[in-house]
Design a protein around this nucleic acid. Structure first.
Lengths: 350, 350
DNA sequence: CTGACTTGTGGTACCGATAACACACGTTGA
DNA sequence: TCAACGTGTGTTATCGGTACCACAAGTCAG
């Protein structure tokens, strides 16, 4: 097993097959008029030399790379992982290669990554942006004429195709549910208003209160980072309130995990002392222990649709106007909200 | 906000700045002898035109891309997700860009992806291969002189740097633990012997039996796919045995989830009727519900070390000989093995 | 029989950058 | 005063492909 002599090029193949590079190129790219005999001679040469055409050269001369980028704030977040897989599958089936980028929810990295993708001359991008502060990065994409689709989050001041969930309606339903269970002081652990989903869920939270004629107590709404640590801290602050909430809504599942830890650390229990609901499911956790009452979003569909809209835009199959797809969320009642417990107690009156 | 005229090139910048393209190139790449005045003129031109150098062209002319690939069988598996994040962080800090590829545990896709990465002229690859059947793909990498590091799994017949866990020792400890709890019939749900980790864990399972003088019953070892569905099916078969096991060891965490479902579906409980242990933790699930007794592997370290070994190899800083790093696993006792329950009963004798 | 058309192939320029060398200027020291 | 050198910049060729046109040979209709 000899090492391939550094860089077999199309010329080497051409020489060995006794044809011009142009003919080799035709064989590689299929179709085109090449006689069967020549074709097989070239194919043999390719095999013998172990030739793999350079995407760099091809991209440069064709002026297109056949590559898309997929940018998310956190691949380790199961929600984004699902989006990524689905989008990649669609892109691959359409013959595109996909570069996956993780911004770690850091603006600086997001900027670098986007710049990098422009440099790579990707033909389009599916991106779950970090927040409204991503605006300059997206503007830059627009300036370069790189088509992009926003998934999960919109960005103020950016017009583009969008696939997102019904954060407002979903939050409204979750909080409504808590209210219907008799809760009057409902905490909300949420991230910065710079993130569209946080903003919308906050509006849903407020709408549900107004609809029920409940007052809005600002001290019940706390800001946090979107991870278990944020949930831990956020719930800590809520529990420290003089008049603490009897139920809490967290902006997503990871925050909920931290919140539960805080409740337990305080010697309390979910849902007995604090009822809990949140957005997004954690598939693996729910299989092991179907506990969290959640507003489940169809993550794969975000990815699938995002990629499809992008492909249509790239191919020019898309309509002129920009499209916004809002996917409904699915309410899953389990233990953490206390509804089942309440039902059981009702069924067996003491 | 005007659209950038299609493709600003180094020539456009040169013209606007009144210099040659070569000088622009010098400015872009820092260092080099360029007068301060010229430099700032060029920089202004770059800014005005919104110029971003093409990586394609640069890669082609420099004959190196500054890009690494990261290939895993399943990004949605939390274990691989952690590896990916860690490896990417290391590579990024070293100034490399990273292309992440998911093979979906399918050989065909793995082959395509590897071919694709050769075409992209990546400078090195960190790969968690699918199984021994990945051998031809890796051979091809070797043939092309693309350095690669195997993580998590080795491949028969492939020599390279490797970072893996102590599957043999870990499995041995897990099974030993079950035996020490009094179990005599211990099931094992595992994937094909073509996967090195499965092979090693099987050897550990057998070693523990031999050390304890227990017989090996082949009917207790069942093959399954490495996901919850596999666990469900595998446990189903074990439960159907006339003389069913009292404890089960599953090859990883996802399989364990399915196995638990099967136990529950049969109207039984873990650990009361069936004790359960497995490899790999699921961070999010364990936070919510610290239930599974696991052999936890330092996933991030797999990624960090894998990337480091690769970078050293690329830079020629690595020693001639190939290195194999075996990372110890960490035994975490929780509820699913029944040890705590046993301890409690012992503490409070009836 | 001839001109138009098809088929298979080659030649040349070019995609956008950089490597390697060339060269026009000071500077400097003997 | 002049050779040797350093500095800043330009020229040319090249990386590995493909687009576009040219062209020879064969086919076909009128």
């Amino acid at each position: 097993m000899r090492l391939v002599p550094p860089n077999v090029t199309i010329k080497d193949v051409a020489t060995l097959a006794g044809v011009s590079p142009m003919t080799v190129s035709r064989v590689i790219n299929g179709g085109e008029r090449v006689s069967g005999e020549t074709r097989s001679r070239v194919e043999r040469a390719i095999g013998d030399l172990g030739y793999v055409p350079s995407r760099l050269a091809r991209g440069l001369s064709r002026q297109k790379t056949g590559t898309l980028a997929l940018i998310v704030p956190d691949v380790a977040n199961p929600f984004f992982t699902l989006i990524v897989r689905a989008a990649e599958a669609v892109a691959r089936r359409a013959g595109y290669r996909v570069i996956l980028c993780d911004t770690w929810s850091e603006l600086v990295i997001e900027r670098e990554v986007i710049e990098e993708m422009i440099a790579h001359r990707v033909e389009g991008i599916v991106i779950a942006p970090i927040s409204d502060r991503s605006r300059p990065h997206l503007r830059r994409l627009a300036r370069f004429g790189v088509p992009f689709v926003l998934v999960d989050r919109t960005v103020n001041g950016i017009k583009s195709d969008v696939v997102c969930g019904d954060s407002l309606g979903g939050a409204n339903s979750l909080v409504e549910h808590l209210i219907s269970l008799g809760h009057r002081r409902i905490g909300f652990i949420v991230e910065s208003d710079q993130v569209s989903t946080a903003r919308d869920r906050r509006r849903g939270y407020e709408a549900a209160h107004r609809a029920a004629g409940l007052p809005l107590d600002p001290s019940l709404v706390v800001d946090a980072t979107v991870d278990p640590a944020g949930g831990l801290a956020g719930m800590g602050r809520l529990l420290a309130l003089g008049d603490r909430p009897t139920a809490v809504f967290t902006v997503n599942n990871l925050v909920a995990l931290g919140a539960i830890e805080a409740v337990r650390a305080a010697g309390l229990a979910v849902p007995d002392d604090i009822a809990l609901v949140c957005f997004d499911d954690i598939e693996y956790a729910s299989r092991l222990y179907p506990f969290l009452t959640v507003m489940e979003q169809p993550a794969e569909t975000f990815g699938t649709l995002g990629a499809q809209l992008l492909l249509e835009r790239i191919d020019g199959r898309a309509p002129e106007r920009l499209r916004t797809v809002v996917l409904p969320a699915h309410f899953v009642v389990r233990e953490s909200c206390g509804a089942r417990q309440a039902a059981r107690q009702q069924a067996v009156p003491s």
